[in-house]
Design a protein around this nucleic acid. Sequence first.
RNA 1: GCCCCCAUCGACUAGCGGCCUAGGUCACCACCCUUUCAAGGUGGCUGCACGGGUUCGAAUCCCGUUGGGGGCACCA
Length: 422
Amino acid sequence: MAAPVRVRMAPSPTGALHVGGVRTALFNWLFARHVGGEFLVRIENTDTSREVQGAVEHALDSLAWLGLDWDRPPTFQLDRIDDCAELAQRLVAEDRAYEDEGAIRYRMPDEGVTAWDDVVKGRIEFPNEELEDLVLVRSDGRPTYNFASPMEDVWDGITHVIRGDDHISNTPKQINLIQAVGADLPVYAHVPNVLATDGKKLSKRHRATGVDELRAAGYLAPALLNFLALLGWAPDGETTLMSRAELIERFDLDRVIKSAAAFDYDKLDWLNGVYLRALPPAEYADALVEYLRTLGNDWPEERIREAAPLVQDKIGRLGEFLAFAGFLFHEVEPDPDLLDRRILEAAAAALEQLEPFEPEPIETALKALCERLELKPRQAFAPIRVAVTGSKVSPGLYESLALLGRGESVARLRRGAAAAAA
RNA sequence: GCCCCCAUCGACUAGCGGCCUAGGUCACCACCCUUUCAAGGUGGCUGCACGGGUUCGAAUCCCGUUGGGGGCACCA
């Protein structure tokens, strides 16, 4: 009977969780869930000098938000410092390793090749003469990554190592170490990296790359997951929309692409919009309220819920709500050049006594106004929109006016009339 | 410099020797719809990096070139 599948993601606590790292985590998680295996989280913190305060909590929070749940409490590489030291001593006793200026080095083979069959890249071979004697334990006693990582994989019973392909050149070193302790080799799957749209390595210079930033911009976790899954993997040539369940159902390591993929924000925006529009109105309002709260926004919840239907079909990211519907929550400062005294005064007069003050009667009244003024709707509505919303772009005009209320709407129209440049 | 990986439209990809005059999605362009912006509908533009092989036949296999990426740490 084959050992149960167990995979892990192993972030180092040196900063916020990056989309590239999350994509790799996602592949691990999808694979584990697909085959009914376990997904573990291990913090690789052997380099204490680079550790960033709060990075661990931050990373776990991002994973949790995405719904990438782990099956055991996260472990810390540094906790195995004694096990590593003990093992290193054993290797020295066996003369497979030796001391060197206080550090312990492993004797890598000088001849032949170290090879493995990578699930995504195919067979990879490294000439052993390229491998230099690896430092296992630093002179201060801390194990190095290339020693601790493969040993932990052995101790934790990791069956599949799914990681970025920047680790390919580490793999032969780790394979030799694992063989040195007589353990079985895991299956390796080196997935391609995620690049920026310009083909360069993704970094802070290119827009948001941290999961926290994407979340703050108003992307939905399921949309982000869907998008990330498609970066380097596709179930076929047609399917683009997949729920979490479908992703799990269809994910297959064998279909992971070999080449690097660029992170396309336009496509993410489109996909997020699809998810946003597909949400039932009540859930959409919930998501919006929740989003604004995590942002620290204190606009009244009831008002947000009332505004939600006006924007659902219009915005692709929840973050756009602030600019798009902000006029419902605060005063506006319209550009005088875009206002028109005659139209605004007429509009104020037409709406002043309107009863009930609802979208349909408002539409009827404004259309009648257009005829009286002998103007096309697009001409007459422009200054009205600007006066009321402060912008040339807004949710539907009738709905916006109705929600704003007669008093405030008329007041803004009058103020606009007074401020009009011409 | 040495080692390793990669190479289909601007982007993500389908394709695993004939079904490909290369399909889908995003972006882009045009038109339609329309109170703005979106959304939606219709149509369109654009691609197998290059050069050699192998084969009756190559985007698909092999070799080379070029280009991109990663590594060569007491970083991960």
